[in-house]
């Protein structure tokens, strides 16, 4: 138990160190950036929670952004008729419907999930744009978007993380998803129907897609329907959250927390770079470097210690 607490502290120190680093080095970054960082990391975290389900079952998904935008559009449209209830219901209907559609497609045409997810991006970006109409733009009122703004967003993310924790670790479907990701052939031997489990994994991402739609539309109170795969840029941060989280799980086995730590860290870096005045290209390069350094740190420390050993002997 004690060891776990120690490990959690170790992991939390990653965003803290990053935060301190940027506070010192960039004048535009500091105490006042904290609320922005927290609220900006909410959406990648929630998307990451969903993405992990699929990545854990060895399925790759690039459609989380498109699904979020589409569900948000449905929510926005329904909000105009039914207010807050319409907003929430619309996001859920939209999010779940697309996820189910994707799961069905995967189940019946049996091509790689990544390819299907690209198809989903194309279809639902266009569908969303059609729904929004010629303005390409949809607005909701403050009376509606309070539900997804501070402090409600924190509550939603927290609830989603708890739900995800139960789903990953305490349910049958959660352990079966892990099993399927491990070895599909072995699943057959113990009576797990891999196709059904993958279907469930994809369908369940709908819950997180719906929640991220809610946060997304409430974040700015409006939504723009982009086409030509613009939504793809939304999935990279969540993917990084999951990769970083997976890497850290050697310390503590609690993926939702790790995905959140990943989300916060990556958001700090993005904001820090902006505060430092990095161009977009430079931001990407620096972020890539960061990921390589973190993921490679084990190898680096190892070679460092062997180098020291070798020097000591010489």
């Amino acid at each position: 138990m004690n060891k776990n607490v120690l490990n959690i502290i170790k992991l939390i120190s990653l965003p803290i160190i990053l935060y301190l680093f940027f506070s010192i080095s960039a004048s535009g970054f500091g105490m006042h950036s904290l609320p922005i960082v927290v609220s900006q990391s909410m959406i990648p975290t929630i998307m990451g929670l969903g993405l992990y389900l699929m990545m854990n079952a060895d399925l790759m998904d690039l459609s989380m952004g498109a699904r979020t935008v589409f569900a948000a559009i449905i929510g926005g449209i329904m909000a105009q008729k039914f207010g807050v209830a319409g907003l929430v219901a619309g996001c859920f209907i939209g999010g779940m419907a697309v996820a189910l559609f994707m799961a069905l497609l995967y189940r019946f045409i049996k091509i790689p999930a990544m390819v299907i997810s690209l198809g989903i991006v194309l279809i639902f970006e266009v569908a969303g744009a059609k729904l929004v109409g010629s303005s390409g733009y949809l607005r909701i009122t403050e009376a509606e978007y309070f539900i997804g703004s501070y402090p409600c967003n924190i509550i939603i993310v927290f609830a989603a993380a708890v739900f995800a924790y139960i789903l990953y670790y305490k349910t049958r479907v959660g352990s079966y998803i892990t099993a399927v990701g491990n070895d599909e052939k072995m699943c057959k031997n113990v009576g797990i129907n891999a196709d059904r489990i993958k279907f469930a994994a994809i369908a369940l991402t709908g819950i997180f897609g719906s929640l991220s739609a809610l946060l997304y539309i409430c974040y700015s109170g409006s939504i723009t329907a982009g086409t030509e795969m613009t939504s793809m840029s939304m999935v990279f941060r969540p993917i990084m959250c999951v990769i970083l989280g997976r890497y850290m799980r050697k310390q503590v086995e609690c993926m939702p927390l790790l995905i959140f730590i990943g989300g916060i860290s990556i958001t700090i870096i993005f904001n820090g770079f902006v505060a430092l005045g990095f161009s977009e290209a430079l931001q990407d390069i620096a972020l890539g470097m960061f990921l390589i350094i973190i993921l490679g740190s084990r190898v680096i420390t190892q070679s460092f210690s062997t180098w020291k050993e070798a020097k000591g002997r010489a």
Binding site: T178, A179, M186
Partner: peptide, 8 residues
């Protein structure tokens, strides 16, 4: 053959 799941 091996019949255990690594991540469980």
């Amino acid at each position: 053959e091996k019949a255990t799941f690594d991540h469980l």
